[in-house]
Design a binder for these strands. Structure first.
Lengths: 162, 162
DNA sequence: CCGCACCTTTACGTAAACGTCAACTTCTGG
DNA sequence: CCAGAAGTTGACGTTTACGTAAAGGTGCGG
């Protein structure tokens, strides 16, 4: 046997590790974003490693990308569909059927890429603007420093090298 | 005189041009994000070109970057501070004072750059993941197409060139 | 088998970001 | 000068994304 000790964790531990509140995790479950790998005999939620990765992804999409939970739901649905596709894929009868599944997956991934790419492009445009402004300020500072150096040299005024 | 015809617009026109609702614009005003350039004799809001640019920026920060209005407030406060700095700058007595103002501006711009850059980096990481997945799918498709071509050639089966 | 921390569901509370009347006032073309 | 379109200030409604309190079950070291 492959040495499997799945290491299931309860919600609190998961929340601390991922950086979410337990409430948020339950909320995401309510919204259909994930289902814990298992439940204990009582009915406590038990999460495995893939659940944790998924939660990390959710957190990233929320905090970094600023996507709404609705957006995230759609993005993950695509990913999930892809995962299920892989299963269906292995059981598909012939190459023709497999090709169809793969092409569907491609379309979904392309949609994700489009969304992310667009967001990045627009952010980069903003960043470029800001960077240009920065350059102008730096130029200004250089000029002022030169001006000051000139004045001080000529006046021999006291410079305190802080 | 320089031929100034400021061309002030009312809220509806502005909303349509920028892609926001009139309510949203009034809301941003309520939140202190902008003040219309003027008011008519009655008390209708009148916006000039710089207001429109500002609203465009706000929309970009909201839609593209996913920043909250609170975040945007802070970012624009920085920009505003910078603008006021320019005025103060022109009236500053000497180069030393000017240098101080410019350096303050630099710090603020750098903060903005940091925020935007961080967001872009994390988005790019996600995009890279997705792109890698896409590549794997494309490879799979190629393989399947080759497989299918082989089968069809050998069987001489009917291909319908849709 | 007991206490205590942790978990469960249920349900109401809330801040943010607007949407949507309502009751007027203001412009503007004819 | 007057009708209809557009604007103004309230003020309450709505959705999203959780927070928080209530009223119990669960799990485990001692």
């Amino acid at each position: 046997m492959t040495d499997e000790t799945p290491r299931l964790r309860r919600i609190r531990e998961v929340a601390d590790e991922v950086g979410l509140t337990t409430r948020a995790i339950r909320y995401y479950e309510e919204m259909g974003l994930l289902t814990p790998a298992a439940r204990s005999d009582g009915s406590q939620r038990l999460y495995d490693e893939s659940d944790i990765e998924r939660l990390r992804a959710i957190r990233g999409l929320r905090d970094d990308a600023g996507f709404s939970v609705a957006d995230i739901t759609r993005l993950l649905e695509d990913t999930d569909h892809l995962a299920r596709s892989r299963t269906a894929f292995r059981q598909a009868e012939g190459p023709a059927e497999r090709l169809g599944i793969a092409r569907g997956g491609l379309a979904r991934v392309d949609r994700q890429i489009g969304l992310l790419g667009g967001k990045i492009d627009r952010l980069r445009a903003m960043l470029d603007d800001t960077t240009a402004r920065r350059a102008r300020i730096v130029a200004l500072i250089d000029q002022l420093e030169a001006e000051l150096a000139g004045l001080e040299t000529r006046a021999g005024s006291g410079i305190v090298p802080a």
